[in-house]
Amino acid sequence: MVKTSLATKAVAVTLGVLVIAGLTAMPAQAAPKSGLKIAIIPKAINNGYFTAWNKGAQKACKEISATCKYMGPTTATGPAQVAFINQAIQQGYNAIVISAADQNAITPALKKAIARKICIVTSDADITDTKSRTVAVLPASSERIGAAEVDWIAAQIGNKGKVAVLSAAATAANQNAWIEAMKRQLAAKYPNITLAGVYYGDDDATKSAQQYNQILTEHPDIAGIISPTTVGIRAAAQEKKSKGSKVAITGLGLPSEMAPYVLDGTVKEFGLWNPIDLGYVGTMAAAECASGNLKQATGAKFTAGGKSYTQGANGVVYLGDPYKFDSSNIVAFSKIY
């Protein structure tokens, strides 16, 4: 029904190549050992985003013949993740790929894992103490993510008006970093846009929807809402759809979940990186590390799926800018993740 544009095809092809490349590419240098045991620990199981993330991780494992176990708590808290880090330690895993639900609380447990010669890679969400993991595979720098989201909303509301942020938990580190970046971008580029406030939906659909309504109650003249979390943007879109408000919504969402809202015009554009890629690259990095091919060092490179990645400061690896979705490309992406 929607005409697939050339750009969309290009992206789809690129993604496909990435996927196929993983299967066929010849490793450049020393290949990761086969038969590694890698623990894949999400913030919480039972979450669609991490299901996709795990998809990438499992793909990587298959390629390198590693045994990967997806295990994690039912609620996204650091202390709850610790039990699974311990499980990985006890069961003699070689590496852990983890999306940190708390930037501090899991650090002591990770240190114990390191003491057992277990490689730690954070993927998707990092921890504060960068010495307690080898590399972090992150979507993009906080500055770029924050700035991109502000750019998207500015375009939708005509560069002026009030906007609010509907975030996840007040303690979510990456969200907070993005919000800071948003504030800087607003101050630098959009003097006519004011930030009405930051609201926390705790990555809970119910609470996020309530916060959306709270925003509209408190600021009836609100022009746009940025929700840098998949749960939040989906809840906001659903609320807007059922209430028929004119507020513009953007942020970070899963294409598969957001497709209906983009197609019916509730949401014009939003973005995200590819969680499958995050999981894939993170797991590859973990395998490289466990094979002794990767250490934390600024400028050091490793390959995953035929593509080379370079560590920035403190071992951070960015996958690239968030990708923008709109009615032209959403259908294609919604089939992927």
Binding site: T77, P79, V82, A105, P108, A169
Partner: peptide
């Protein structure tokens, strides 16, 4: 104990 064990103080700790 909780604070030391997780080396941090966070407002959403020990939920439930």
């Amino acid at each position: 104990v909780y604070t030391l064990r997780f080396a941090s103080a966070s407002p959403d700790g020990a939920m439930g």
